[in-house]
């Protein structure tokens, strides 16, 4: 019982202290750029839980979800194709390494040119930024399929779809998840800046509008909202990862104990 209390105390202690320090240190603030935390919290609700939730926040998240999902399908699909053929791998590797090395935000101006400034452009930007980490990690994962398991599948004549599902994709899944995690943070960055660059709605657009209009407490609330979304999405990711990779973490722990 005390052990649980200690853990809760350690987990909550510092965050509570930090928020309290911010709260009281900013309480009497007259600095225009650093409004009291109290004011920021007060404007948070009215700013984000009204029309803006439906008009800005949800569309942004929808575009992120659509782009991210498409990147996952595309990245894993192409990654499996490339990873399972030695020749294709050798030919495409430098090209992929180059495309991956391009900082994804520069794709915003390019895709604006090609696809305008609508939803399509923003989703395309998210796809084309998120796909590389997923693709390259999938390639690496598919390459690393265990030889003994490969032999097992061959002797027991496990082929076709069964082999893809139960051998290739599952073997590569720890790497795919690593790629997907990197892609998620890239995706959030791209969601925000594609809206900062050219948009008439969305989270990134609204926050920039507050900035331009010198609505400083509202701007701060936007910054906090973006932060909370980042934290929330990464927590969600962990839950999914826990489900998908429970066998992996379990077998790793079992190996260490032997």
């Amino acid at each position: 019982m005390t052990a649980v209390l200690t853990r809760v105390g350690l987990a909550l202690g510092l965050p509570v202290v930090l928020v309290a320090v911010w709260w009281f240190a900013s309480a009497g603030s007259t600095d225009f750029f650093f409004p009291p935390l109290r004011t920021i919290v007060e404007v948070f609700g009215p700013t984000w839980f009204g029309e803006r939730l439906v008009d800005d926040v949800l569309p942004s998240l929808g575009r992120l979800a659509a782009g991210y999902a498409a990147a996952l399908v595309l990245g894993v699909g192409l990654g499996v194709l490339i990873g399972s053929n030695r020749w294709v791998r050798a030919v495409t590797e430098p090209v992929l390494e180059f495309l991956r090395a391009i900082p994804p935000p520069v794709l915003v101006p390019v895709l604006m040119l090609v696809a305008g400034i609508g939803n399509g452009m923003k989703i395309l930007v998210i796809i084309s930024g998120c796909v590389w980490p997923i693709l390259l990690n999938t390639v690496a994962g598919v390459r690393a399929v265990d030889g003994v398991l490969e032999d097992t599948c061959r002797t027991y004549r496990i082929r076709g779809t069964l082999r893809w599902r139960h051998l290739v994709l599952r073997s590569a899944s720890p790497q795919i998840v690593t790629g997907a995690r990197q892609a998620l943070s890239v995706g959030i960055i791209l969601m925000v800046i594609s809206e900062m660059f050219a948009a008439s709605s969305g989270l990134g657009f609204t926050v920039i509008q507050f900035k331009d209009g010198f609505q400083i407490p509202e701007m701060w609330s936007g910054v906090i909202l973006l932060g909370l979304l980042g934290v929330l999405l990464s927590m969600l990711f962990r839950v999914v990862e826990h489900q998908v990779l429970s066998w992996y973490h379990g077998s790793r722990t079992a190996q260490k104990e032997r």
């Binding site: 900062m196 990134g204 973006l226």
Partner: peptide, 26 residues
């Protein structure tokens, strides 16, 4: 380490682009 781990886990995923309006204003 134990006392800071939750704070680090919380601050880390905050997308740095969220800070853009803030740094521009400042």
């Amino acid at each position: 380490r134990a006392a800071t781990s939750s704070t680090i886990e919380f601050l880390r995923p905050i997308p740095s682009v969220a800070l853009i309006p803030l740094v521009v204003v400042l």
